[in-house]
């Protein structure tokens, strides 16, 4: 029970990060490998502001704002000039940005992991006989669920969301129908980075922040996005939660715990073999 709920909350974190990958992929048709490092920057922001002010709320708000600004700046400076370049050029740029951010973090904060205790302080509750649950797990779950519902409604029911769908279907046609594609891409990066800020807050509960803080959850969330079907928003949620559950279940069984990461990525390979477009990915129909 606890394992499952912990798995769900870890999955929710992966899902939040995976959403950032999948939205950017769906709309800008690029893989933003610097996304994981935005999480790292968000975590350092929380750490720094929290140690200065001692106020977790301010720390978190600053972190969201910083992540959003960072996302927009990365898009404007690094990716926008390459909009017509080959996908490989964009990919390698993204990896470059990722290295740059990690290097800067090392320069400023050093390589030592620094832990922040915000949500952990909330303690734990006993929900039933012998089942003790951290409140932070519940907070993570509830907040992530709310965020995902709001995001889904935003995409489905609003003008901007509709424009995002239109851009992801046919950029040229959307532009000729009066949609400002650059603005939509910017909004996408902003939303993705804001989700990353939430993820960094939740992930900080689990491990202390270091320059490579975002690397592993980033790559796992990317795997989750691919498992769910990259470009699909519900897919990212499903993939993330699935991966989180698998990870926690594996970790709870002593015999297979050391192989957890291998099992996770094995799952990725297995799903891609059975369904190459991911669980909820769109079928690509070939026309003759």
């Amino acid at each position: 029970m606890v394992t499952l709920l912990d798995g769900l909350s870890l999955g929710a974190i992966y899902a939040l990060i995976a959403l950032g990958y999948t939205m950017v992929y769906g709309i800008a048709k690029m893989l933003n490998f610097a996304h994981g490092d935005v999480i790292m920057v968000g975590a350092y922001a929380i750490f720094t502001v929290f140690s200065i002010t001692g106020n977790p709320v301010i720390a978190f708000i600053v972190s969201i704002i910083l992540c959003v600004v960072l996302g927009i700046v990365i898009e404007k400076l690094a990716y926008k000039p390459l909009r017509t370049a080959s996908p490989l050029a964009v990919l390698i740029t993204a990896i470059g940005v990722s290295n740059l951010l990690q290097g800067l973090a090392q320069l400023i904060f050093g390589t030592e992991p620094k832990s922040v205790i915000i949500l952990n302080k909330l303690g734990s509750v006993e929900i039933a006989d012998g089942i003790i649950l951290n409140i932070s797990t519940i907070v993570t779950l509830v907040l992530s669920a709310i965020i995902m519902i709001v995001l889904t409604l935003f995409i489905k029911k609003t003008k901007t969301g509709r424009a995002m769908l239109a851009v992801s279907e046919d950029k040229g046609a959307a532009q000729l129908m009066g949609v400002n594609v650059n603005k939509i891409i910017m909004i996408t990066f902003a939303i993705g980075s804001a989700l990353a800020a939430f993820a960094s807050l939740f992930y900080l509960i689990k491990i202390p922040v270091s320059p490579s803080f975002g690397a592993l959850p980033g790559i796992k969330a990317f795997a989750a996005a691919v498992i769910g079907g990259i470009g699909s928003i519900p897919g990212a949620m499903v993939g993330g939660i699935l991966l989180g559950l698998v990870e926690n279940i594996c970790l709870s069984i002593d015999v297979i715990a050391p192989y957890t990461t291998s099992i996770e990525f094995g799952l990725l390979i297995l799903i891609l073999l059975v369904k190459p477009t991911g669980i909820l990915g769109k079928k690509i129909r070939e026309k003759v």
Binding site: T158, K159, T160, R162, A163, L165, A166, E169, D170, G172, A173, A174, M177, G178, V179, N180, I187, K282
Partner: peptide, 26 residues
């Protein structure tokens, strides 16, 4: 070049995207 995976009415609503009377920020 329609937005194939969107409903008919949503296709038209994308067209309405930039009409000033429907301005509504994100």
């Amino acid at each position: 070049r329609l937005f194939n995976n969107m409903s008919v009415i949503r296709n038209v609503m994308v067209g309405l995207h930039n009409q000033p009377e429907f301005r509504c920020d994100p």
